[in-house]
Amino acid sequence: MTENKGFLNIMDSSVWGGMEQYVYDMSEELQRQGVAPFVLTDMGNPNFINRYGEVATVLTIKLSKNSRYLYANTVAKYIHENNIDTILCHTGKFILFALLLKKLTGVKVLFFKHNVLPAKTDIYHRWIQNQVDSFVCVSKCVYDAQVVKEKQEKYHLVYNGINTHRFPKVEVEQSQNGIFIVGYAGRISIDKGIMELLGAIKILHEQGKNVELHMCGGVSENTLSQIDEYIKSNHMKTYVKNLGFKKDVNQFYRFIDCLVVPSKIQEAFGLVICEAMYCNTPVITSTSGAQEEIITHGEDGLLLDTVTDTTIANAIVYLMDNPAEYEKIRKKGYHRVESTFTIENMVSSIKSL
């Protein structure tokens, strides 16, 4: 295995989400491990230019479909001048450009798979599979969906990992009056089970439980209006708080008593799950994707086979009423993430490909 010289991520999007944060955290860790990180992004995206500039050297071109190929020789020259030996592509819209750069420079191309989608086997995608050096799948459920048997040696399971440096141990003022704080973090949407979670909190209040729900994350106007209407019609304003998007979620995870992530769609990974577990916060989540690869039910978290108001409420009550189990899950959850799902492990594995 030759020593890595420099990694170039190709990244552009209209919003900053999990995949964009993945590249940010990876770039920061590459620096810590002695590899020079570079990010290629669109010259008209100041948000990405500024944010990635905090952790990597940023190269800008016009990345739109009709323009990027005009810059191929410019980028190829930059690759040679900066001793870049690996290109990392995270979406299909940039893979042809990445492979053109490989043709011009001889660098490796790693194609990251962040979604649970079945592999395509038409002529075009078979050609892509022949040209790419390695495919990186962020969980086993992604690997199982994506792997092409004829090219199995090119597919690698490299678990996503959290940037533990973002989650130092800090003293956080705990809730008053014995209130049990249920947290939700991530994109707030209907398919993420947010209405069922609200229904569970309503059930618990009807049972006389002293519970609050604190939600943290981005939300569309349409979903927000549905949530607000539900909260208003069920008189829940005093015990449901929407905190909006928070860049620093360390204190949020350490303040809440448990995190509930009742997603109803297939999740490629579960970054917020790992973040909360690392912060010693028990997690309740569904079995709709890679969550089962992270959590063993009853040991380091709780899994829901079905997502309903009642199943969520019952799981929350279990944590509230069983302090010994709560403490066991809290401690084992931390050790599970600390041993397996860290950015250090992830980047070390990627460097070895």
Rank of each mutant, 00 (worst) to 15 (best):
N250M: 05
E267R: 05
C258W: 13
L271T: 14
F252D: 05
V272Q: 02
L271A: 00
C279K: 02
G270Q: 04
E275M: 06
C258N: 10
E275R: 11
C258S: 02
V272N: 02
V283P: 11
N280Y: 15
V283A: 09
Y278H: 10
A276H: 03
P282A: 03
K264P: 03
I256M: 10
N250R: 12
V283S: 05
F269G: 10
G270N: 10
F252K: 12
P282C: 04
M277W: 11
R254W: 04
I273W: 02
Y278R: 09
K264C: 08
V272R: 01
P282H: 09
V272M: 03
V261S: 15
C279R: 04
S263H: 05
V261Y: 11
R254Y: 10
Y253K: 12
L259G: 08
L259D: 13
P282Q: 06
I273S: 12
V261I: 15
I265H: 10
S263R: 08
C258Y: 14
Q251S: 15
L271H: 12
E275H: 08
E267F: 03
Y278I: 01
I273R: 01
C258A: 03
S263M: 04
I265V: 14
G270I: 07
E275G: 00
F255Q: 14
P282V: 07
A268R: 08
I256H: 11
E267L: 02
C274Q: 02
V260G: 00
V260L: 02
I265D: 05
L271S: 03
Y278M: 07
Q251L: 13
N250C: 08
L259M: 14
N280M: 14
V261P: 00
F269Q: 09
G270A: 14
C274N: 12
N280L: 14
V260N: 01
R254N: 14
K264V: 00
Y278T: 00
V272H: 00
N280P: 00
A268C: 03
C258R: 11
A276W: 07
V272A: 01
Y253N: 06
T281S: 01
C279L: 02
Q266A: 09
K264H: 07
M277V: 12
G270T: 04
P262Q: 01
S263K: 05
F269W: 10
F269E: 06
Y278F: 15
P262G: 02
A276C: 08
F255P: 09
E267V: 00
Q266F: 08
L259T: 11
R254S: 14
I265G: 03
F252W: 03
C279A: 11
E267H: 06
M277K: 09
D257A: 11
F255N: 13
L259A: 13
V283L: 08
I256C: 06
C274M: 14
Y253W: 10
F255C: 01
E267T: 01
V272K: 00
F255H: 15
F255W: 04
C274P: 04
M277R: 07
P282E: 03
V261G: 04
C274W: 09
R254D: 12
N250K: 04
N280I: 01
F255L: 14
V283C: 08
N250S: 13
V260T: 06
P282N: 02
C279Q: 01
E267Q: 11
G270K: 02
Q266M: 05
C258T: 15
A276M: 08
N280A: 13
